[in-house]
């Protein structure tokens, strides 16, 4: 029996109940059947357009949001307590995640403070150590967040996440609020911490070049589902799924002129009532017969999985080659 992976996400679904407002009554289907795993020391990148459910997925991994179906397992178990310290999160905006009234040593050691049983002196020493490990100076721990730049605040947030010796960090757009020169510093820090501590990362980002640089594997999300997943360079250099291709064509690059994008390419369909059949069908340039069936994420070439029958030759209602799974109950509108 092989050891279970560090993190496994199994058929995860997250729905937000919307009780009031214009859409009262209909749920938001934010994550719609996501499965993947992360090994120790590995980085998986999650890419996809705004609203496709990346942050929700990250929150669900941490247990910060309720899951409607499926499971999140750490080393094979679903226990919440283990998750709470073994998995930590870094947000996009370090400003809002740091209480401005607390000195940096208190911020960094907040998770230990919550756990309790430490004297202030111990906490300050630990904070200085952690500060140094993220490239701050020991004396910085006596200062307050507003005295730091955006990049330094992100270092403080990383130090705080490391305080409880986690095995996995969820990085939700960790550099999107930063300038490119500062981004480079944070990326280098994350890479070296990973090498030193065998950390695993779930890197959520809309920046494909960042994910390409940092991740071993990448999962492309569309409307709360993974449409393609596999080794980073396989997926990003030779995308299979029509959506992955649309997305990558739009990424601005020095070495090629502006892509001409079909206008429909710009609009994500509503996640209040999920489409029947392939979620990408409305926007897909290759849509054809068979796309009105729900699509399954199944093995394609090599280590890659793709959710499109044109690529995999597996039809929604047919029998997938890998473990059979029920077709996704997408049209069960709430």
């Amino acid at each position: 029996m092989t050891e279970p992976p560090l993190l496994s996400v199994e058929d995860l679904e997250v729905r937000y109940r919307v009780t009031s407002g214009w859409f009262g009554g209909s749920d938001v289907h934010a994550v719609n059947g996501v499965s993947f795993s992360v090994a120790e020391g590995e980085t998986i990148g999650i890419v996809g357009e705004s609203g496709c459910g990346k942050t929700t997925l990250g929150q669900a991994i941490l247990g910060l949001t309720d899951i409607s179906a499926g499971a999140v397992k750490l080393r094979g178990t679903e226990r919440d307590r283990a998750r709470r310290t073994q998995i930590q999160i870094i947000f996009q905006d370090p400003q809002s995640s740091l209480d401005p009234r607390l000195p940096v040593w208190r911020l960094i050691t907040e998770p230990l403070h919550i756990r309790g049983g430490y004297a202030n002196k111990q906490l300050i020493d630990r904070a200085s150590e952690l500060a140094v490990s993220v490239g701050l100076r020991p004396e910085h721990v006596d200062r307050y967040p507003h005295e730091f730049s955006g990049g330094q605040r992100q270092r403080i947030a990383i130090a705080r996440a490391l305080a409880v010796e986690p095995a996995l960090l969820v990085l939700d757009e960790p550099t999107s609020a930063l300038d490119v020169s500062v981004q480079a510093q944070i990326v280098n820090l994350l890479l070296s911490l990973q090498a030193q501590r065998k950390l695993s990362y779930v890197l959520i980002s809309h920046d494909v070049s960042l994910v390409r640089h940092v991740a071993d594997r990448v999962a492309v999300m569309y409307l709360g589902q993974i449409v393609e997943e596999g080794p980073t360079l396989d997926v990003l250099d030779a995308p299979s799924h029509p959506y992955t291709r649309t997305l990558l064509d739009a990424v601005p690059r020095f070495d090629r002129p502006l892509a001409s994008i079909a206008p429909r390419a710009g609009e994500l369909p509503s996640n209040r009532t999920l489409p029947t059949g392939c979620f990408f069908r409305e926007r897909c340039p290759s849509a054809t017969a068979g796309c009105e069936q729900p699509q399954l994420l199944v093995a394609a070439d090599g280590l890659r999985k793709v959710r499109c029958h044109l690529v995999t030759n597996v039809h929604g209602m047919g029998r997938p080659r890998s473990a059979p799974r029920p077709a996704f109950p997408s049209d069960a509108t709430a």
Binding site: V180, A184, Q185, N188, L191, S192, S209, L233
Partner: peptide, 23 residues
């Protein structure tokens, strides 16, 4: 030069990005 070189994508994956010193 530094602005262009600190972008991910110009060095091999996982290699340190070029940094601009200071602020």
């Amino acid at each position: 030069r530094a602005l262009i070189r600190c972008l991910p994508g110009l060095v091999a994956p996982k290699q340190p990005l070029e940094q601009i010193l200071g602020t």
